[in-house]
């Protein structure tokens, strides 16, 4: 199997604005069935926030759902190209101990690939 990242990624990156609320980010994750959303500031990629980030960086710190989601973001993102082999994405995730990578194409973010996308054991509805 030589699947490319583009074949397994979640395309059309799902994003929230830096100043949108933590609650809005949570509803976006719920409604799209995803575990992470990209955070955009001034129309540029600012970072990425996961469902876990909302829990450990907001709920555990007594931040309410009305506060902006932007400050919870992870920055210094490791990206992968849409044309890379899926194995490259898996190797990057292991090397950097992350579960999701933004997918880049033509200098733009084309989607997100997660460890579940790469994992043949993952539940079918999440593939």
């Amino acid at each position: 199997m030589n699947a490319k990242v583009r074949d397994v990624m979640t395309p059309g990156p799902i994003g929230v604005d830096y100043y949108q609320s933590i609650g809005t980010a949570a509803r976006t994750m719920r409604d799209w069935g995803v575990g992470a959303v990209l955070v955009v500031s001034d129309q540029a990629l600012y970072g990425l926030v996961t469902d876990r980030d909302l829990v450990v960086r907001a709920v555990a710190e007594s931040k309410g759902p009305d506060e902006p989601v932007g400050p919870l973001s992870s920055r210094d993102l490791v990206g992968v190209h849409a044309d890379d082999d899926a194995e490259v994405a898996m190797a990057l995730m292991r090397e950097h101990a992350v579960r999701r990578l933004p997918v880049l194409e033509d200098g733009q973010v084309a989607g997100i690939v997660s460890v579940g996308d790469l994992d043949p054991l993952a539940p079918p509805d999440e593939l």
Binding site: I22, G23, A26, R27, M29, R30, G35, D51, R52, L54, V55, V56, A58, V59, S62, P65
Partner: peptide, 17 residues
């Protein structure tokens, strides 16, 4: 799970406290 807290509490505007 952490996901449950996101989907069942934050997304529903329930108070974690």
């Amino acid at each position: 799970t952490d996901r449950d807290i996101t989907v069942r509490v934050l997304a529903e505007n329930r108070d974690p406290l």
